[in-house]
Design a binder for these strands. Structure first.
Length: 703
DNA sequence: CGGCCGTACTG
DNA sequence: CAGTACG
DNA sequence: GCCG
C-alpha cells in the first residue's frame, strides 16, 4: 500500500518533469506519435486481412495518395468508440441496478451513488455536479478530436476537473477507444498504473455515469482498455469486448454485407485511422453539413448571377408538441394559405386562394429550408444525425437517409434543445430508434454506431472507391471483395469501364469543390460560345450555385432557346456547341452524352483556359415550354425535389424535369400507369402555385 | 406490412 | 436489365 | 429509419 503510493509519487514526479521540459507536448501532442507507435505494434497482429492481394508496396504508396485526395471528412473522426450500443445508454433506468450487480467482482467500492451533497448553487441546469471532486485526465488529453472534446466539456459541465497534465490528483484516466493500455504506459512512462488511486476507464465511462446519474463502478469490464489485463487473472489477450457492432443490413433488399469482410473484428488494424484531411466530400450531395463547416468560406465572390440569400429566416416558434398539432404553421409571408378543407380540384385556379389541405403541410417543400442550423439549439445533434444519414447514403441504404433527413428537418425547426428520448419521440418523424440516438448524442456527444462503422477498414476502402465517379455501391463492394484497397490498385489491376477510368484518373479534381466564382466562369464561357452560335440560346447556372452556395460539387447548366424545339436545340448542342467547346480545349471529356436523336443531358468535364483542374459539368437541354420544370429540377436540392414530386403524386399528378402533369393513373405502389396530361412546364412559379406550395426562393430549398 | 421521386445514360 | 447518375 |  504505502509502497504503491510512494511509487506513484515517483512516477508523477517524472511526469511533471516531462511536462516542464516539453510543454509543446501537452497540446495535441501525441496523436501522431501515438499513432505511429501504435502502428508499429499492430504491424504484426495485422495478419488476417480477408482480402488477398494487399501488395504491401502499394499499400504505402497509396496511403500517401489517400491523403492528398479530398476525402474522408475529418469530422468522421469525431465519433469514437466501437461497441454496439451499451445497454446502459439504451435503457439506463431499467438496467442500472442489475448491471452493477453483474460486475461486483471488481472493486466493490465504486458504486457511489449520486452525491446528494453538492451545493445548491449548481442545481440549475443539469443534475447537480455529478463529477464533483473527480479529476479526469483524458488520453489523449486534448481537444483535437471533436468527440473527445465533447466528452471533456461534458465532464466539466458535470463538475469534473479536467487535468491538463497528469498528476497525483488525477482520479480517472479516460481513454479513447483508439488507444490501448500500452500506449498509455508508454506515454506516461509508467510500468503500471496504480489501480487503487487511478481508474483507467474507457471513453464511454463518463457518459454512462451521466446517464445513470451516478458514479458507476469503474472497474467493470466494459470499461477496460484495450490491452489491459486484469492483474492476477489468467485471461490473456485482449478483452474481446462484446464489440463489433453488426451493421444492420442496409435495406431489406441489400441484405448482408460480406460478413467476413466487413464485420471482421477490428481491434485496430487499418493502416492509419488518424489524421484525415478535411476537404469536402463533394460527390453527390452538395453543401456538406452546414452544422460543422458552418463558418463558410465567407464573403466575397458572391456577385454572380442570382441574389444570394440574406440572413433572413426566423425560426418558427409556434411549434407545439402535441401529438396532433404537429404541422408547423406556415407563418410565412407569401401565401399564408393554411386552412380549410380542400374542395374541388381547382388546380389551375391560381389567382384565387390556394387551398392547402392540412396533410400537405407536412411536406418538406412546404417549409422554408435554408439548410442552416447555426442557431439551432439542436445543432450538435443535427450534425451527428447528418453524418449518420451520409453514412447510410454511401452504404446504399435507400431509406434510412430519408428518415434521418426528415428527423433532422424537424429538429432544425424545433426551438428547444431535445435531450431525452421521451421528448424526442413526440416529435414528428422521430421514432423510438432515432429518439434513443438523440439521447445518446446529447449524453455522450457521439454515436458509437457511426464511429465503429467508419473505423471498419473495409468500410473506409469502400468510402474511397465510392468517390470515384462511376463507381457506385455495387461496383465498390465488388472491388473491395476482390481485395483492392487503394486507388492505385484500381488503376493497375481492376476492371473498370471508361467512365470509371476517367473518374479514377481525375479523382482529385472531381472531388474538389468548385468555388462559386469559378462556376460563374465556366458558365460564362459556355454562354459565350453558345451565343456565338445563336443569339437566342440562353444558359442558366443551376444546382447549388443557384441556391447560393459558396462552392459547388460540379457545374450545372441549363441550355435553352426561346423558340426552338428540343430537336433543333439538341442538334445544335451536340453538333456544334459541344464540338466547339472541345476544340477550344474547354471540354475535356464526355461521361454521358445525349444522342442526337433524343435525350436531354450531357455530362462531362471542363477546364478553364490556363487551368489544369478538370471540373464535372452537366448540361441540361431544355425547350422553353419546359423551362420552369427544368429550373425546379436542376435547382434542387434533391430532397426538395422528392418532396415536391411526392406531393404531386399524392395529388394525382406527376412532376418531373419537363413539367407537371395531372390525371396520372397509378397502380399499386404508385406505379405510373398513365403519363397524364401536361398542366404546366414553362413557369416555375405556376408549378408551385398549382401544387399549393408557397413560392420558395432557390436558397429556401435546402432541405 | 409496404411505401419512401422520377428520370437519363451506360454496358 | 442493373447500375450509376442528376437535382 | 419513420409513417399510415
Amino acid at each position: 500500500m504505502a509502497t504503491e503510493d510512494a511509487a506513484l509519487k515517483v512516477k508523477v514526479a517524472r511526469f511533471e518533469e516531462l511536462y516542464a521540459l516539453d510543454d509543446s507536448q501537452d497540446d495535441e501532442p501525441d496523436e501522431g506519435l501515438l499513432q505511429s507507435m501504435a502502428m508499429l505494434k499492430r504491424k504484426r497482429s495485422e495478419k488476417s486481412e480477408p482480402l488477398a492481394q494487399t501488395s504491401s508496396s502499394s499499400m504505402t504508396a497509396i496511403s500517401k495518395r489517400d491523403r492528398d485526395a479530398p476525402e474522408i471528412p475529418a469530422k468522421l473522426q469525431k465519433l469514437s468508440r466501437t461497441t454496439s450500443a451499451p445497454p446502459s445508454l439504451i435503457s439506463p433506468h431499467k438496467t442500472a441496478s442489475s448491471r452493477q450487480l453483474r460486475r461486483t467482482s471488481t472493486l466493490p467500492k465504486s458504486v457511489v451513488t449520486t452525491t446528494p451533497t453538492s451545493d445548491p448553487a449548481d442545481v440549475a441546469p443539469k443534475p447537480a455536479k455529478l463529477f464533483s471532486g473527480l479529476h479526469f485526465y483524458f488520453f489523449p488529453n486534448n481537444l483535437k478530436n471533436p468527440g473527445r472534446k465533447f466528452r471533456i466539456q461534458k465532464a466539466e459541465e458535470y463538475g469534473a476537473k479536467w487535468e491538463q497534465a497528469f498528476s497525483a490528483t488525477v482520479t480517472h484516466i479516460v481513454v479513447d477507444r483508439s488507444m490501448n493500455y500500452d500506449q498509455i504506459l508508454q506515454y506516461l512512462r509508467l510500468d503500471a498504473i496504480p489501480q487503487q488511486n487511478i481508474h483507467v476507464v474507457d471513453e464511454r465511462y463518463p457518459a454512462d455515469c451521466i446517464s445513470f446519474r451516478s458514479i458507476v463502478d469503474a472497474g467493470q469490464r466494459q470499461y477496460y482498455i484495450k490491452g489491459y489485463k486484469p492483474q492476477q487473472v489468467s485471461e490473456p489477450t485482449v478483452i474481446p469486448r462484446a464489440d463489433s457492432l453488426q451493421l444492420k443490413p442496409a435495406g431489406r433488399a441489400v441484405q448482408t454485407r460480406e460478413p467476413q469482410t466487413l464485420s471482421q473484428r477490428t481491434t485496430t488494424t487499418l493502416s492509419d485511422p488518424s489524421p484525415v484531411k478535411p476537404a469536402s466530400m463533394a460527390t453527390t450531395v452538395e453543401d456538406p453539413s452546414p452544422g460543422k463547416r458552418a463558418l463558410e468560406p465567407s464573403d466575397s465572390s458572391l456577385s454572380a448571377g442570382w441574389e444570394r440569400p440574406g440572413p433572413r429566416e426566423q425560426i418558427v416558434l409556434s411549434y407545439c408538441f402535441g401529438t396532433d398539432s404537429r404541422q408547423l404553421i406556415d407563418d410565412d409571408d407569401d401565401q399564408g394559405t393554411t386552412s380549410t378543407a380542400t374542395t374541388g380540384t381547382n388546380l389551375l385556379d391560381l389567382g384565387s386562394s390556394t387551398v392547402v389541405p392540412k396533410w400537405q403541410q407536412r411536406f418538406q417543400c412546404m417549409q422554408q429550408n435554408t439548410g442552416k442550423n447555426e442557431d439551432s439549439p439542436n445543432a450538435e445533434t443535427i450534425a451527428l444525425l447528418q453524418e449518420m444519414a451520409e453514412y447510410y447514403t454511401q452504404i446504399k441504404d435507400e431509406w434510412r437517409p430519408i428518415a434521418y433527413r426528415k428527423a433532422i428537418a424537424t429538429l432544425r425547426k424545433h426551438p428547444v434543445k431535445v435531450t431525452t428520448k421521451e421528448a424526442a419521440e413526440k416529435l414528428p418523424f422521430i421514432g423510438e430508434r432515432l429518439a434513443a440516438k438523440i439521447e445518446e448524442i446529447t449524453f455522450a456527444g457521439f454515436l458509437q454506431r457511426l464511429q465503429s462503422a467508419r473505423e471498419e477498414p473495409a468500410d473506409q476502402v469502400l468510402q474511397l472507391f465510392l468517390k470515384v465517379y462511376g463507381i457506385g455501391y455495387a461496383k465498390g463492394m465488388r472491388l473491395v471483395a476482390q481485395g483492392y484497397k487503394t486507388l492505385e490498385d484500381l488503376r493497375t489491376k481492376a476492371d473498370l469501364d471508361q467512365n470509371q477510368k476517367i473518374g479514377l484518373e481525375h479523382f482529385d479534381d472531381f472531388n474538389t469543390r468548385v468555388p462559386r466564382l469559378e462556376v460563374k466562369q465556366h458558365s460564362d464561357l459556355v454562354a459565350k460560345a453558345a451565343k456565338n452560335l445563336n443569339e437566342g440560346i440562353q444558359v442558366y447556372t443551376m444546382g447549388s450555385y443557384r441556391r447560393g452556395a459558396e462552392s459547388t460539387g460540379d457545374i450545372d447548366l441549363v441550355i435553352t432557346h426561346a423558340n426552338w424545339p428540343m430537336t433543333r436545340l439538341r442538334v445544335m448542342v451536340i453538333d456544334s456547341l459541344v464540338p466547339q467547346l472541345f476544340k477550344q480545349g474547354f471540354l475535356k471529356c464526355a461521361l454521358a452524352a445525349t444522342s442526337r436523336q433524343d435525350g436531354s443531358k450531357w455530362h462531362g468535364a471542363s477546364c478553364l483556359p490556363g487551368s489544369n483542374v478538370w471540373r464535372r459539368i452537366d448540361f441540361l437541354l431544355v425547350p422553353a415550354e419546359e423551362l420552369g420544370a427544368a429550373l425546379i429540377y436542376f435547382t434542387g436540392n434533391d430532397i426538395f425535389n422528392r418532396s415536391m414530386r411526392l406531393l404531386a403524386s399524392k395529388k394525382g399528378m406527376r412532376l418531373n424535369q419537363r413539367g407537371l402533369y395531372k390525371d396520372v393513373m397509378r397502380g399499386k405502389s404508385r406505379e405510373k400507369l398513365t403519363e397524364g396530361e401536361l398542366v404546366e412546364g414553362r413557369d416555375e412559379k405556376k408549378i408551385f402555385a398549382i401544387l399549393g406550395v408557397p413560392w420558395r426562393e432557390p436558397w429556401e430549398r435546402i432541405c
